[in-house]
Structures are given as structure tokens and as C-alpha cells.
Design a protein around this nucleic acid. Structure first.
Lengths: 344, 344
DNA sequence: ATTAGCACTCGCCATCTAAGAGTGCTAACA
DNA sequence: TGTTAGCACTCTTAGATGGCGAGTGCTAAT
């Protein structure tokens, strides 16, 4: 177990290192007013902390740097919430008060604000749509050969697909299809559209609509579960200002990983509810060996539907970042709940 | 005026430098089988070319490097079309044969393919919507307080806005509004929606709909000309592999400029019809001092509606890039014309 | 007009050195 | 016994030095 003094020293080292990005020596720690010990004493403690794996030396005659384990301890036990700063609150309030009613716009804005305030890179995973229900289906003919299907969900989300009208069909036939589908599918959760379409509706449609077979394929693809939830990025450039990314190859690896949004998607959607802090190799991603990721989930009407987070060097202002993410996740939850006003 | 030999040498230098990214010496040029002159002769010519401003020396004992002026001459006079390569055609055909019917998807795909084939960064500016016409307006109530307006254009583009229903209005009132607006606005080009709404429709609406005033603001903002056309990026990471971007600060400046899509938007939408090559400072952008940009416009049914391009170092494979962009712009034009099948 | 020859320039790289920061250890101290 | 002063030692960094090589510009010969 660590002594009170060791904890104090570890904390001081992490705090200083986060600021300076340079190895911390015993002398500079001993100079701090909150640590009344000589460099020699501190050296002893540092050596012990290193033995226990909380600190590392870049090389034998350098100061100490926190290890992943050290950061982990810091995050788990040495973090006390600071009051949220005035201007941070202002920024957020200003943002959420704008009454943005498009979900996509809210997401983008959130990503932008999050990266702005933390000065790390931010990621926001759009709300999962699986359980939203079909509110209304419409088809609008564009030409005699093409029409557009519009799907509105109870959350106000609108999807549309253009499709070709089978040659032998006319507008009246199309209307029949729409009517039957509306009867059948309204209030069906997104996740079950395709299944339900295949199982029940097809029989009915075949009975009532001429040449329905020609349309089947088209319809099926229109009702395919929508593309994976969107990922919104913000402030990727912030990473470039950090000294740990002065090497372009490193940056490239990271950006390439982030470029594949399916990566990000699986990562974020697998994280558990509430706040998550993943330090360095805890991410299990090669390119992220010395990056940390802080994520939080947000919810709509109490149900968790997505998450957001920041990515930065392991040398991160955990306290501040955690505070801001918490705050934003809450704001986002209330904001979205307001948009999706009704019960889900 | 440049002699035939000088042109030959300039061409050789550009070609070699584009490959190697290192200053080219007289010796290596003289070794080329297509140049039967001794290094000394070439040195003389090089000195002349430098005097005329087509070449530069990084330092006094290095080889020569093309200047912006040199690249310009090369692009304007020394570029002969090479046959398009087999696999390039294949890639493009595969892409355009996918019959992607969503415009947005086509744009994204185009950006991806363009950056993939050129291995530079690509930009695609979505089609300008100004002249598309309203095909149909629908409003779908979500709750008693909220509804969603759906605008379909004759190009199959769908826009939707969620809005609050004024307290005193009911669904019947809403229907009336929709009917009147449809009568009035169908076939009106996007650019004139707002104007026409204000001028003619409002009078009518006031007459026939109770409490119309409460709705006015909402409606007006729904018919605001849509957000500026979208910009799609591809292969930003490709830039990082170029040796001229090994400096992170440089990369940051460029990315930050690109991050502001309004920059990109004005730049691209101001470029003239057809193919454009802007070399280095011709871009008039500080961060782009040694970047080149090649853009081309694409059209729908013969009318120019957008553009696409690549960004790379001035040391660029102009020939190849130009060829690919031309090809893609054509492909995009036919593909979009097919989507927007009817006359515009 | 072209080319061979040659002195010269200059960046690059490896080597070296001195300075400085920081450590670990030992012995003295409270 | 816990703390500290002192000191030798280690290792990085920055700057200086010098040879190497690629490339040039000029001159004189072809």
C-alpha cells in the first residue's frame, strides 16, 4: 500500500508532468510549497514508486514520468472534482440553448464544443436508432420511373431512399403498397422492419398488388436496417499541437485508425454505461499505446443510446476532461430528450 | 523563348524530381537515355533556366528543383496525355456501375476513389442546389406539439426540418397550410422559396388559416435556403506520407485551413469551368505556398453544378492527376445525370 | 557549340566535448 | 529511525570540428 506521502508525490508528478510534458526531477517537486521534503527524501520515494511500477525513467539520468499504472492510480484515487469554470458553463449553456432541433446538428456541435473546451480530439457517436419506431411511410414519385421512399420515425428522424419503379407498375399500385405497408409497419422498431416485411407483409402485398414480385427486391433494400450510426469528429487538429505527436508517422497511424469509423464505432458502443477512462495500452489498440480515451454515455429519456469522448495523450488533463465530458453528456441527454420529447 | 533542349531538360528535371523529391543534378540528367548531352552542357542550360526563373537551387551546391514557374510551364506545355491505365479504368467503372442512388453516397465514394487513385487528398463539392425545384411538401405531425416538414426536390433531394406547432393550431390548420404552400411553391427553384413565400403566399395563408402569424417565423426558417453545399474530403492522410509534410506544424496549418469548409467552398465554387491547375502561390493561400491544387467541374445534364479536385505538394504527378480528375469528373457527370434523370 | 577537367561550395554526418540535469548511495544528523 | 547533505556517476543535449560527397561554375581544349 502506498503511504500518504507517496500518493502526494505521485500526484505532484502527474500534475506537473501533464503541464510540462517533461520528466519531473526530485528537486522541482521538493520546491513545491505543498511538499516539505528535501530532494533526497523525494528521490527515495520516487525510487520506491518506480519499483512498484507507478513511475518510469525515460533514461537513467532523467526525471520520472508516470507510467500507465501511475495514471490509473491517479485517475482512480487522486482525482477530486474541481468547480466547473465560469466560461465553460457559459459555452455549454450557449450551445444547448440554441434549440437545435436536428439531431445531426446537435451531434456536430457537441463534438466541436467538446474538442474546443478540452483541446483534445473529440468523438461523438450518434444515437442508436434500433428501437425507434416507424411513424409514417411515404412514397413520392419523381418521374414515371423513379420514386422516393420517405421513412419518418417517432424520434423525428427521416430517412429516404430513391428507387426505380418496376416497369409494369403504376402510381395506383404504388399507393396500395404504401397503404399496406403503413398498416403493417407503423410502430415497428427499426430493427424489425426487414424481418416483419418479409414475414407478414409480403403475403398481403402479393395478394393485393399486381406485379409485386418486381418490387420486392427494391423494397427489401429500402428497409434494410440503416447504415451504422454516425460518428462525428471534432478537433482532430488539436492532437497535432501536443508535443507527443511531433512525429508524423505516429499521427498518421492514429488518424488512419480513426478514419475507419467502424473501429471507433465498435470501440465506443462496447464501452459500458457511465464514465470510462482508458489509459494507454488499456485501449488494446497498437496505435493508441500512449493515448488515453475518456468516454461517457448519454441517454434519451433515461435510456442509454450513444456515447461521446475525447482522445488525447496519456499525459492528459484527466480532471478537467472528465469534468467536461460529464457535463456535456448530461447536457446532451437533456437536449436530446427535449427533441425526442415524447416517451420512448 | 526556350530552346527545344531546354524544354527537354526542364521536363526531365520535373519528372525526376516528382519521383525522387530530391534536387536533381546535371549528372543524373545526362545519364538518361533520352538526353544525349554531357553534364557540363546540361549545367549550362540549367544555369540559364535558373536565370529565367524556371529552376531553383535549395543551396549553392545542390541540384536544381523546379520553381512554381517551372511547374507552370511544364503543366501548360510539356504535358502529353498518357493512356489511362487498365486498373484505373476498372476501379472507376466498378464504382460508377454500383448504381448508387443517393447523391451524398456518390459524392463520398468519388472523394474516396479520387484520393485512392491519386494518393493525394481529394475534395468534392456537392452539387449546387439553387436551381432545383420543389416537387412536394409534406408535414408529418410527430406529437401534438411537434411536426416535421419534408421538402422533396425534383432531383430527388430530400430535406426535412422539425418544428414546433404553434399552440393554438391544430392538425387541420396544418393541412391547410400544406395545401396552400404546395399550390404556391411547387416548381419554385430553391433559391426563390423564401422570397416567394414572403411575397405571395403569406397573404393567402393569412386569409385562410387561423393563427397563421404564430407559424410565420417557423415557416420562414424552414424555407431558408439550405445550408451551403456540402464538402466531402478523402484521403487527407495521404498528405502525411509525402516527404514535404514531415513537419507537423505545416500539416496543422493546412489541415486547419481545410477544416473550415467555407474556405474550401468559396475556393472551389469560384474556379472556372473545366480543368484548373493552381500551382503553389497561385492559390493565394499562405498555408498552400507549396501545394498545388487541381480541380475540375462536373455537370448535370450539361449544366455545371459542382467541382472536385485534389490537393498535393507542388511536386505532384500532374499528368496522372489531371487524367484521373478529368475521367472522374466525366464519370460523375454521367452518373449524376442518370440519377437526376429528367431534364433540369 | 560542346565537353573535359578542376577548384570550390556547402550540406550532411559522424565524432567529440562540455554543460547540465538528475540519480543513487553513503554518511551524518535530529 | 526517518530525513537530509554531499558527492560521484550517468546520460542527454547542444555546439563545435572535420572529412566526405554531390554538385556547381568556370576555363580551356576539342
Amino acid at each position: 500500500m502506498l503511504s500518504r506521502r507517496q500518493l502526494l508525490i505521485l500526484q505532484a508528478i502527474v500534475d506537473d508532468y501533464v503541464q510540462s510534458a517533461e520528466p519531473i526531477g526530485s528537486r522541482s517537486i521538493s520546491k513545491r510549497t505543498d511538499i516539505p521534503f528535501s530532494p533526497a527524501t523525494i528521490r527515495n520515494e520516487m525510487a520506491d514508486l518506480e519499483d512498484m511500477g507507478y513511475l518510469q525513467k525515460p533514461h537513467s539520468s532523467a526525471g520520472r514520468v508516470p507510467s500507465n499504472k501511475g495514471y490509473r492510480l491517479y485517475v482512480d484515487h487522486l482525482l477530486y472534482p474541481e468547480p466547473v469554470e465560469e466560461h465553460e458553463i457559459l459555452d455549454m449553456e450557449k450551445m444547448f440553448s440554441q434549440r437545435i432541433s436536428e439531431v445531426e446538428a446537435v451531434m456536430k456541435k457537441t463534438a466541436a464544443v467538446l474538442s474546443e473546451l478540452t483541446s483534445y480530439a473529440s468523438i461523438v457517436l450518434g444515437p442508436e436508432m434500433d428501437r425507434t419506431r416507424l411513424k409514417q411511410l411515404q412514397m413520392i414519385p419523381l418521374t414515371s420511373k423513379q420514386a422516393i421512399a420517405i421513412l419518418v420515425t417517432d424520434t423525428g428522424h427521416v430517412e429516404n431512399r430513391t428507387f426505380d419503379i418496376p416497369e409494369k407498375m403504376n402510381v395506383a399500385d404504388l399507393e396500395k403498397v404504401v397503404n399496406i405497408l403503413n398498416d403493417q409497419l407503423v410502430d415497428t422498431p427499426v430493427g424489425q422492419w426487414e424481418e416483419k416485411l418479409m414475414a407478414e407483409s409480403t403475403r398481403l402485398l402479393k395478394q393485393h398488388v399486381r406485379h409485386y414480385e418486381d418490387m420486392f427486391g427494391v423494397l427489401r433494400s429500402a428497409f434494410k436496417p440503416e447504415k451504422s450510426d454516425q460518428v462525428f469528429y471534432g478537433g482532430m487538429m488539436n492532437l497535432l499541437t501536443q508535443p507527443e505527436f511531433k512525429d508524423v508517422d505516429r499521427v498518421r497511424m492514429i488518424f488512419e485508425w480513426l478514419d475507419h469509423s467502424e473501429n471507433v464505432h465498435t470501440l465506443l458502443s462496447n464501452s459500458q454505461e457511465g464514465l470510462n477512462v482508458r489509459i494507454g495500452k488499456e485501449n488494446n489498440i497498437e496505435a493508441f499505446a500512449d493515448m488515453s480515451m475518456i468516454t461517457a454515455t448519454y441517454s434519451i429519456g433515461g435510456r442509454t443510446v450513444g456515447s461521446l469522448g475525447v482522445i488525447g495523450p496519456t499525459r492528459m488533463e484527466y480532471e478537467r476532461a472528465i469534468r467536461l465530458i460529464r457535463q456535456l453528456a448530461n447536457g446532451l441527454s437533456t437536449s436530446l430528450t427535449k427533441i425526442y420529447r415524447h416517451d420512448i
